[in-house]
Amino acid sequence: MPSASTFARLPDGPAEDITILFNGEAVRARSGDTVAAALIAAGHRITRTTPVSGTGRGPYCMMGACFECLVEIDGEPNRQGCMVQVRDGMRIDAMSGARKLAEGNP
């Protein structure tokens, strides 16, 4: 669950114009946002649990170095949320521990 966002957009900037899904829930975002920025803007601060201890983590460096913002994007696990720009309708899910084996076992 998100807490109320403690971040606000600058009033004279562009409006939030698209919708993405985070864990199935609609989140408004701005074209040009990275996934991680859009989630922070919406108050989602825990974006994965670790494969080691299962504790929650959220975006840390926002520049592709720390790999803390790993999320599943349109079915592809362990994407760096700070390195991917949002698209309308994009489906984002928190990573829960290690990735799973892809479906469709031959």
């Binding site: 701005r30 946002d33 922070i40 803007a41």
Partner: peptide, 10 residues
């Protein structure tokens, strides 16, 4: 980066 790219201000 949040400020520059997304106009986000705490």
């Amino acid at each position: 980066i949040l400020l520059k790219t997304a106009g986000l201000v705490p």
